[in-house]
Structures are given as C-alpha cells and as structure tokens.
Amino acid sequence: MKGSTHLAIGLVIGAAAAVYHQPTAVQSAAYIAAAGLSALAPDLDGTNMLSAKLSGLSRAIHRGALGGGAIAAAAAAYLYATGQTVPLLLVWVGIPLMLVLMSVSSGTIRNGLVSLVGIGLAVAGARGGDVWLIGLGAYTAWAPWLKHRGMTHTVWALLYWYWLGREAESGLDIPGLAVVGAAGYASHLVADTLTSLGVKWLYPLYRKSIKLPFF
C-alpha cells in the first residue's frame, strides 16, 4: 500500500483523537503528528515517505564519492608514473574510497543516513533524559537494515511503539498519546494485511504472512 494512503489514515486517526480529547492547539498538533508518523514508521525498513528524500542525497553522495575516489586514484597513478611523490592521502583514502564505493549501493548509503538520524535522536534523548526519544532513535537507526515487512511489521514492534508512546505521553504530559501512536502504527499493519503480500504479525514465531487481500 502506498505511503500516502498510510499517511492519510494516520492523519484521520490523529484528527479523530484531537476531536475526542478536545486539547489545546499544541496537543492537537501532537496527536496528528504522532499518528501520521506512526502510520509511516513500519516502512522505515525500506524506502518510504520518511526516508525518500534521503534517496536523492544518497545517490548524489554515491556518485560524488565514487567520482572523487576515481579522480584520486587517477592522480595517484599519474604522479607515480611520472616519478613524482604520491601523497599518502591519495593512496590511503582515495583508492580505498573508490573500491568501497564500487561495492556499496546508494541504498546502503541511504540506510546509513537514516541510521545517523536515529543516532542523533538517541543522543538528543540521552542528553535531555528523554527515554522515549532514545527509544525512537534506536528504532530509526535499526529499522533500515531489516527485511521489508519483517520485524517492523509485527505485533512485537507494535508493542514497542506503544511503550514509546507511553514514555512520550508521560514526558510530554499529553494524555492519550500512547494510544494514538499505537493506533497509527496498527493502522499500517492492518492496511498491509489487506494486500496480497500480507503481514507476518507473529514473526519469527510464525513465519507465514497473514493476509485478507482486499486491494
């Protein structure tokens, strides 16, 4: 299912929570943001609306680093062939960089960038003493390296997300935030269950996809 559909469902959940709780404007925005983010979070194990913007950056980094490595290697070869001194920087940085980038895809770089965002969130949470932000950072750093529709699409991930919501609810003093976040996350899993691929809700205990294909 498209990320835009997941997001739309999440935003509806957040808006419904805002109407139900009748909070302040800031709390209403928090409900909507939490539900929308939660509805997209399971797909951090692949390219989704949260990480798509990093795909272009990762391709640019890949091309730039590969080109830079090739130039450095060519420069080192020219200097060596003409009997000039070859700077160690070219030998120990340029050539290895080229070789590494030849074997690493832009998708791997994108995953690394997403992980860096997660690490940043975790560090910020550690500095501020926010357990929920540390947990969110850990999830964000870990998810990109998982198989698509694997662990992030399970009841265990949903429970973890609910726990994050409870911590955020306590830390931010916004009643009902945990339920709203969990509902947004669950909406993603339910929506994917209605597709032909389904969802492995109990993976790895039960490895078959549970599906009720509707779309």
Rank of each mutant, 00 (worst) to 15 (best):
H6S: 08
H6N: 06
V12I: 15
G14A: 06
A16R: 00
Q22W: 03
A25R: 07
Q27M: 07
A30S: 11
G36Q: 08
A39M: 04
L40E: 04
P42T: 04
P42S: 09
L44G: 05
L44T: 08
G46Q: 07
G46C: 02
G46M: 01
N48G: 15
S51N: 09
I61Y: 01
L66M: 14
G67S: 15
G67Y: 11
G68F: 14
G68Q: 11
G69L: 10
G69M: 12
I71K: 06
I71R: 12
A73S: 15
A75K: 05
A77W: 11
T85K: 12
P87H: 09
L89P: 00
V93Q: 01
V93H: 03
G94D: 03
G94S: 09
I95N: 08
M98W: 13
M98C: 04
V100L: 14
L101Q: 06
V104T: 08
S106F: 12
T108L: 06
R110K: 14
N111R: 15
V114L: 07
S115T: 15
G120A: 09
L121M: 12
V123W: 09
A126H: 05
G129Q: 04
V131M: 10
L133W: 02
G135W: 11
G137L: 03
A138K: 00
T140R: 02
A141P: 05
A141Y: 04
W145I: 12
L146F: 03
L146Y: 01
G150D: 10
G150C: 04
M151D: 05
M151F: 14
T152D: 02
V155E: 02
W156C: 02
W156L: 14
Y160T: 13
W161F: 15
Y162T: 12
W163M: 13
G165E: 07
E167F: 06
S170C: 02
G171Q: 12
G171W: 03
L177R: 08
A178P: 06
A178C: 07
A178F: 08
V180T: 13
G181F: 02
S187H: 05
H188W: 12
V190C: 04
D192P: 07
L194D: 00
L197I: 03
W201F: 14
L202I: 10
Y203T: 06
R207A: 14
K208C: 00
S209Q: 10
K211E: 11
